[in-house]
C-alpha cells in the first residue's frame, strides 16, 4: 500500500488510476462490441448465442469479469469524487466564461457524460447482466440472450435510452481515449496526433455499432 497509495491520494496518482481503469474499460468495450456485433450476421442469433455462451461460461472470462467490476467501480467512484472535488476549487465563479475558445465541451463534461453512462449502465445491467447471471440460474430459463435482446428492444423508450447512452459513450471516449495516454505521460509530437485520431475513430465506430444494435432489433432489420 505504501508504494501504490499515491494512486488514490495525490492529484496525479488519481488521474493515473482513472487512466488505467479507463484503458481497461476500453479493452472491455472492444470485446463486448465485437461479440455483440455478431447479431449482424443476421442468422437468427446463432453465432451470437454461441459466442455469448462461451463468454458466459469460460472460467477465464468470468474471472476477468470480477476484475472488470472492480475497475469499473474504482473508475466510477474516483470519477465522481474528482468531479465533485474539482468543482469546489473555484468558489467565486467567473462573471463571463468562454470555455469553447480553449477546449472542447465534452472534455469539460466528462463528469456529466460519465454520470449519464452510469445511469445507462444501471438500466443495461438490469436488462441483461442481472437476468442472465442470476434469474436464469434460479428459474432455469430457456430464453437465449438473442431472444432477450429481441424482447427488450421491442420497447421504443429502451431503444431511445440506448441510443442516448451510446452518444454519451462516443463523447466520453473521444476525450477519454487520448486523455488516458496523456495521463500516463505518453505525449509525443509524432504519436499523440495518431492516438487522438485512433481514439476518435474508436469512439465513433464502437458507439455507432452499439447504437445500431437496439435500432436494428427494434425495426426487425436483423431477424
Amino acid at each position: 500500500m505504501k508504494i501504490f497509495g499515491f494512486l488514490f491520494q495525490s492529484s496525479i496518482g488519481k488521474k493515473i488510476m482513472m487512466s488505467l481503469t479507463g484503458l481497461f474499460l476500453i479493452s472491455f468495450l472492444l470485446v463486448h462490441c465485437g461479440v455483440n456485433a455478431m447479431i449482424f450476421f443476421n442468422d437468427g442469433g446463432e453465432i451470437f448465442n454461441e459466442a455469448a455462451e462461451f463468454m458466459g461460461t469460460n472460467w477465464l472470462i468470468r474471472t476477468i469479469e470480477v476484475g472488470l467490476f472492480v475497475f469499473l467501480l474504482i473508475h466510477i467512484i474516483q470519477g465522481l469524487y474528482l468531479w465533485n472535488d474539482n468543482a469546489k476549487k473555484r468558489k467565486e465563479k467567473y462573471g463571463k466564461t468562454a470555455g469553447n475558445a480553449n477546449s472542447t465541451w465534452y472534455s469539460r463534461s466528462m463528469g456529466l457524460l460519465g454520470t449519464l453512462l452510469l445511469l445507462f449502465l444501471i438500466i443495461h445491467l438490469r436488462h441483461f447482466w442481472v437476468i442472465s447471471r442470476f434469474t436464469d440460474v434460479v428459474t432455469g430459463g430457456e430464453q437465449t440472450l438473442y431472444e432477450m435482446m429481441k424482447e427488450v428492444f421491442a420497447e421504443p423508450w429502451v431503444v431511445a435510452a440506448y441510443v442516448l447512452g451510446c452518444i454519451s459513450l462516443a463523447y466520453h471516449l473521444m476525450h477519454g481515449f487520448q486523455s488516458a495516454f496523456q495521463s500516463l505521460g505518453i505525449n509525443h509530437p509524432l504519436y499523440t496526433p495518431l492516438i487522438q485520431q485512433i481514439g476518435n475513430g474508436f469512439a465513433i465506430v464502437v458507439s455507432v455499432l452499439f447504437a445500431a444494435m437496439p435500432v436494428a432489433m427494434h425495426f426487425n432489420i436483423v431477424q
Binding site: S10, S11, I12, K14, K15, L82, D85, N86, K89, R90, G99, A101, N102, S103, T104, S107, R108, M110, H175, Q178, S179, Q182, S183
Partner: peptide, 16 residues
C-alpha cells in the same frame, strides 16, 4: 495539492 489546486482533466485549456 496542499495549496488546494484542482486535478488535471486534460481539457487543454491551460496550454491554449
Amino acid at each position: 495539492d496542499a495549496e488546494g489546486f484542482g486535478a488535471c482533466t486534460n481539457t487543454g485549456a491551460c496550454a491554449a
